[in-house]
Amino acid sequence: MQLVANIIVLSAIYALISCGYVLIYRVSRVLNLAHGELMMVGAYLLLMTASFTSNPMVAIPVAAVLSLTMGALVYLLLMRRMTGESVLAAILTTIALGILLRGLIVIFFSAAHQYPAVPLGIHSSSVQVLPGARISSLSLILVVVTALVYASLFAFLRLSRWGLRMQAAGQNPLLAAQRGINLHAIYAMVWAISMFTGSVAGMLISLDAGLDQTLIMIGLKAFPAALVGGLDSLLGALIGSLIVAAAEVLLIQYVNPLLADVVPFLILIVMLVVRPWGLFGTREALDRV
């Protein structure tokens, strides 16, 4: 039972992170390999706001709004310039951005392991969720938040006009532009949302476990989850996260704890061999890149 609870928590973490990869890829066909770093920046934004106020009801929303803004700025100041460049150039730009952010984070916040939960007075307690399974209260919140984020994303993409425009831009950017849709605005919006969801994940993880550069690795491991599900499918990201998390928890438990960092990538390789476009992805996505 404890294993089941652990799988659910880990898949919630991966799902909350991997939707960021999916959103950006689905709408703008860019693979954002800086997502792990952007997510970490979100967590450090919380550390920053926590140094001004000890009220989590202020610190967390302010940090979330800052991350939303920063996500849009990443597109408008940097990625916008990569329009029309090769796939490789766009990926490399995100990698370069990631390296830059890693450096800046250490310069501004130091490399030490820090706890944003302390100034905010947040204490995690253990909660009984299933018979014989306990998780921390923050993990429970994380699962709930992930569910909420996915529900709102589905609703936003399916029901709101801007969500529909995002889908339209992803399907056929030329026609979207022709229908009066400002692609730059759409892309800026999707980068903002993506960084926002990533940051929320980063904040919740760091409130529970503290914060340092290892957060990036979690962000990178969420990427195979997105790809296993299909890079252009949100539902896929959800299922992919569940698969990767289950495999990781079970293999660590029964085979070898050292496998932790490599399991998601093993699954990724298997998926690339069998069905590269993922469980729920569209096959054409493969030819488009």
């Binding site: 450096g103 250490v106 490399a111």
Partner: peptide
């Protein structure tokens, strides 16, 4: 001194971006 490696990363990222763009 402690953040030399961080400055490396930052400078490195910045230079890469500058060349790419």
């Amino acid at each position: 001194a402690g953040s030399i490696f961080a400055m490396n990363y930052a400078a490195f990222g910045l230079i890469m971006i500058a060349f790419l763009v």
